[in-house]
């Protein structure tokens, strides 16, 4: 048994799978750091991903271009973000509850939109698997020719490369731009930010919409990047995992990225080992990443320092 596990761990396929399983988590989690740092809980990534997934397949299927599919996915994600922001920022509703509602609604809406677009006639079921144009893999010149590393990291579809770039981009925005400063100020001390003339609501709206766009892109990766098809509820809790990765990484871009890799790796390993019929119960492997995260959070990471105004709607005094 040990030999088999070692063989899996040494295989190139495993690492390619790790990159594939990590990418959607990475896009959603990194894209949501800004919203989280501005004080808005992004428990709604699940909804954004699902609508992104269906948006990508609809866009790609109707226009015949996978790139336009990506645009539709980001648009759908942004719309969910906008609705979420109305409730979370303007109305000041409980953000977790709003997210739960959106996740539920997205589950229904995504499958309705899918059937409406692809059913041969009204009310009929889709029988054959819908295939739409998907994204081609881009081999990066030179880097892609390096043995092993080239295959694993640099022979992927373009969204994956965007995911790599997102780590420094988000870091730069957060710590080196005025806007990043505003985001942090709004999250840590909304009243002070308001006093110096920062629009708390404005910053939060934009951050949440960015979270929507990125999670939509993550959803597109699931549908037209990975499987090239849509299944009801295909995000399968990845939005929650991305959320966990954010807390795990303590809202720092690099830490969050590491968190998503941890999950992606555990997931990929689990999938590969599952195919081998080992004596380890498969359920244990599925639960493994969650257990690892739970234990790491509790034992090693310690008490997380949440953004000070986390989850709390902001209201100007005297209003």
């Amino acid at each position: 048994m040990l030999e088999q596990i070692v063989a899996v761990i040494l295989s190139v396929e495993l690492y390619t799978a790790v990159v594939r399983m990590t990418t959607p988590l990475l896009l959603a989690a990194l894209g949501s750091i800004l919203a989280e740092r501005s004080g808005v809980v992004t428990f709604s990534m699940e909804a954004m991903m699902l609508l992104g997934a269906v948006g990508a397949i609809i866009g790609s299927g109707l226009t015949g271009s996978a790139w336009l599919g990506l645009c539709v996915a980001m648009l759908f994600g942004a719309l969910v973000g906008l609705i979420y922001a109305v409730w979370a920022v303007s109305i000041g509703a409980n953000q977790i509850v709003t997210s739960v509602a959106l996740n539920l609604g997205a589950l229904g809406l995504s499958s309705i939109l899918y059937v409406m677009t692809f059913a041969p006639a009204k009310g009929e079921v889709i029988e054959q698997v819908i295939q739409v144009p998907s994204l081609p893999a881009w081999k990066i010149p030179l880097l892609g020719d390096i043995p092993v590393i080239g295959t694993v990291f640099f022979n992927q579809i373009p969204i994956v490369y965007f995911g790599y770039l997102l780590i420094p981009i988000i870091w730069f925005i957060l710590y080196k731009t005025t806007w990043g400063l505003k985001v942090r100020a709004v999250g840590e001390h909304p009243h002070a930010a308001d006093t110096v003339g920062i629009s708390v609501a404005g910053v939060r709206y934009i951050s949440v919409v960015i979270s929507g766009i990125m999670s939509g892109l993550a959803g597109a990766f699931l549908s037209i990047g990975m499987l090239n098809t849509f299944q009801e509820g295909m995000s399968a809790g990845r939005g929650f995992i991305a959320y966990t990765a954010i807390v795990f990484g303590k809202w720092e871009p690099l830490g969050v990225a590491l968190g998503t890799v941890l999950f992606g790796a555990a997931d990929a390993l689990q999938l590969r080992l599952q195919a081998m019929n080992l004596a380890i119960p498969y359920q244990f492997m599925v639960a493994f990443p969650y257990l690892v995260t739970f234990i790491t959070l509790v034992v090693f990471v310690g008490k997380a320092v949440w953004p000070a105004s986390y989850g709390m709607p902001f209201q100007r005094e005297g209003k």
Partner: peptide, 24 residues
């Protein structure tokens, strides 16, 4: 009526959204 079961999720989601907005 061939209306998919998924509509029920949408109804539930909207009901929650309106209920929490109304309560506020």
């Amino acid at each position: 009526t061939q209306v998919p079961i998924s509509v029920v999720y949408v109804i539930q989601a909207l009901a929650i959204l309106f209920a929490i907005a109304g309560a506020l």
